[in-house]
Every structure is written in C-alpha cells, then in structure tokens.
Nucleic acid binder design. Structure first.
Lengths: 207, 207
DNA sequence: CGGCATCCGGGAAGATACTG
DNA sequence: CAGTATCTTCCCGGATGCCG
C-alpha cells in the first residue's frame, strides 16, 4: 500500500521532474492517457508488458503527484499531466534517430497517433482530414499549415485508413507508396494522391 | 558484469528511447556530461546519491548504446548522447512548473548552467558575456538575440558571478535584485545594471 | 469482468569495504 | 583516483485470488 518514494534528492529541476515521472512505465502510462481518459484494462492493453500491480502503483503515484485524475473507473491526465507532451515528443524525436529499433514489436494505437503528431512536418502540411481505425480504435487527424490535431473518435472524414497498428506504422513511416489494394493489410479509402501527400508529412526516412 | 537489458519490447519510438536512456540515473549522467567530458569522480561529485557500482553500470550501458565514449579515464557524450539535450530541456521546463521542488537540495554546477540554458528567454536577450565560478568550477555564458552559449572554462568576461551553486540558483531564479554586497554569498563583479538585465532573462517567477 | 491485493522469485539499486 | 566485490534492500514482473 504505502509506496515509499525514492527521490534523487537534488535541487535540479530535471531531477525533480524525474522524481515525479522517472519511474519505470510512468511516462508510457502518460503516453496512453495523452489522447484522453482510459480505463484500467485499456491501459493494460496499450502496455502489454506491465504487471497489474505495477500499473496500480503508477496510477496511484501519478495521482498523488497531481498528474492523473481518477474519474470513477477511468483515469485521465490533469493539465500537469498533459504538460508532459513536450517530454514525450522529445523522446520520440530522439528515439527515432537511435538504432536498434524494431518496428515489428507491438505498437499501441495511441503510441502511433502520438508519434505521428511528434514527427509531422507541419510547415509543409496542407489541409487534410483523415480518419484512422487502428485495432478497432477510432481517431481523427486534422492538419493545416503549421497545425496538427489528433483526437479519439470522429467519423465522416474524406480519407480513412484502417488496419493493424504495425502495418499502419509501416505505411506511414515506410518508403513504400500508398496503393488502393490493401497489400500490406492497410485499407485506404479516399483520394489516393491526397492520401500520399498526407503520408509524406511523416517520413522518418532520410532525405 | 553482464547486465541484461530490460526492454519494454514495444515498437513505439518513445519506448525505444526509454529502453536506451530510461534507466534510473541514466539521464542525470547524461546531464553531467552535457557540457563536456568528466572523470568518474567528477561524475560522482555531481550525482551525490549514486553508488559507484551503479555509475559503472550506467556508463557501461550508455557506452554500449553508443551514447558515451570512454577516452582513457574520462567519459564524454557521443553526438547521439548530446542529442538528448532536447529531452533534458523539456524535463527542465516541465519540472520547473511542478510543485514540491526543494531548491535547498544539492544542485550540481552543471545542472544549474543547463537549467539556465533551458529557461533563458532568448528572444529578449541582449549581448552579454558572463563568467561563473560555482563550487570552484568555471563556466562562460554568452547571450545574444535568440542565441545562448555555455561552456566550461573561459576567463576575462566583463561580468563574473562567484559563489555556491545553491546561492547562485537563488540569485538567478529568485525574486531578490542583484546587489554588490555578497549578502546571499554570491559575489558579483561588473556592471550592476547589466548583471541585473542578464539575470532577468532567467526568471522562473511568474509575470 | 474490472480493479485491484497478495505472495513470490529474480534482479536491479544502494551502502560499505576493499584493492590496484 | 578509479573502480570492484559483497551484501542487503527493495523494486519489478508474473501468478493467483478476492470482491464488488
């Protein structure tokens, strides 16, 4: 029950930040909550390796730190918790440049949508509205010059991407052009040229 | 000897980043190396809570991950390691807004100089050159419109701040105006008005 | 079934002592 | 000074069980 907090005991504000969010899994829990409230089982589904008691501890600790608000059976980020987005974004951008990454491993739908928000070249973005259905979860993405918005839910977007999360990640970040035939098990509905222009905003490929 | 890496086993690039740098102490080791190579005992001095064997493990792991280069008895960051600066910066900015911070705890000289680099309002910066002597360590800071540079060493700057690191942190981030008399055990040499203008670039205070 | 509490084994972190 | 060796503590991960 009583979790003794282990602190770095430093006056450094980065160390203070790590005292609050540096525990194993904590930042990934924040990641899963970054697009809206989730239930315990949904969090577990997005974090396959976490043990139930560890998730309980993290949620308790993050609630005590003022990062998570519990609303009945759902957990949501507080404004302080949403403030972690720049940290996650910096980690995404740095991690994308580090070797050893295996894109075949599990990617949660939330993680993919956030990695797209992190890596989108917004200055080059035209006006787009796209729906995503990833492992049954529905998202909406809207882009514009210098703007990017993603949210759960939606419907009626002129473009729709549908498929497994890993296949979608390959389609978004991979070098292969978009095709109508769902040959990599990603379904696309909409204007093919606009879909390709949209995907080109996220190229992690060099050049 | 052989440290088995514990991975999140996710395809998420943020999780991959945390696989590389998410271990306890790892980011703080990177912090201490961020302004140049350090020796084992210097790292320990900047990380008072770390055990020697844990520091050894972190340095080995970060070397294996391509983040740290060992040059004889000194350790230095590789370009990939220096690439962690945006992550540290985001943590600094977020941590500064979180309650529970105790500025009386130990602050390493490197940590203070980096927190200044993170929080400086560069767009408001005039041309300044300032020397710092913190707990015997010498630094140089140069600012200009939109620019900020900090490095170890230096000498001959028109302004010099000298004192304990915690007292310096209070002078930089605190509400008290700069005075010639070192009443908070911070010594200042140079033009008082320019010194105050320089310090005003770092106000964490609201408003 | 969702949301934990509890127990257990392994391993990482922490403190101390010691050595080249 | 730069670590290594050793021991202890405690966190993490996995399994099980309780309880609304």
């Amino acid at each position: 029950m009583e979790t003794r907090r282990r602190s770095y005991d430093e006056g450094c504000i980065a160390a203070h930040a790590l005292d609050l969010i540096g525990d194993r899994w904590a930042l990934l829990v924040a990641r899963e909550l970054m697009l809206g409230g989730r239930r315990f089982s949904e969090l577990r589904a997005g974090l396959p390796g976490i043990a139930a008691n560890v998730l309980t501890q993290r949620l308790e600790g993050m609630e005590a730190a003022g990062l998570v608000l519990r609303e009945g059976r759902a957990y949501a980020l507080t404004p302080a918790g949403f403030g972690l987005w720049p940290v996650l974004k910096a980690l995404c951008l740095w991690g994308a440049a580090q070797p050893g990454h295996d894109p075949r491993l599990f990617i949660s739908p939330t993680a993919l949508m956030l990695s797209m928000r992190a890596t989108c070249r917004r200055e080059a973005a035209g006006m787009h509205r796209a729906g995503f259905v990833l492992a049954g979860e529905r998202f909406t993405v809207e882009t514009g010059p210098g703007a990017y918005r993603v949210a759960r839910g939606g419907g009626g977007e002129p473009m729709l991407f549908e498929g497994g999360t890993n296949a979608m990640a390959a389609a978004v970040y991979g070098p292969r052009p978009l095709t109508e035939t769902a040959e990599d098990s990603v379904g696309f509905t909409g204007d093919l040229a606009e879909g390709q222009a949209f995907l080109d905003l996220f190229s992690l490929r060099r050049g």
